[in-house]
């Protein structure tokens, strides 16, 4: 799995940490009625965009 994440992150030009963190948060919120994950994802993407552009 981790190896595949590395491959996919590289293929699609995203930080592997973003993919890992997003999956981790989705896993933690899997049972919630209202995950509210979209704003969290945008937040994470913005953070990684800042770091990448930084």
């Amino acid at each position: 799995m981790e190896q595949q994440l590395q491959v996919l992150a590289q293929k699609h030009g995203i930080p592997v940490a973003l993919l890992q963190e997003a999956i981790k948060e989705e896993r933690e919120r899997i049972v919630r009625q209202n995950r509210r994950m979209t704003p969290r994802l945008k937040e994470m993407i913005a953070q990684y965009a800042d770091v990448s552009q930084g």
Partner: peptide
């Protein structure tokens, strides 16, 4: 510019997730 990059990241994340 930041948004464009964020969109690129989001699209990359989406495509990566789909493939994943």
């Amino acid at each position: 510019a930041t948004l464009a990059y964020q969109v690129r990241l989001a699209r990359g994340l989406l495509e990566a997730t789909k493939e994943l």
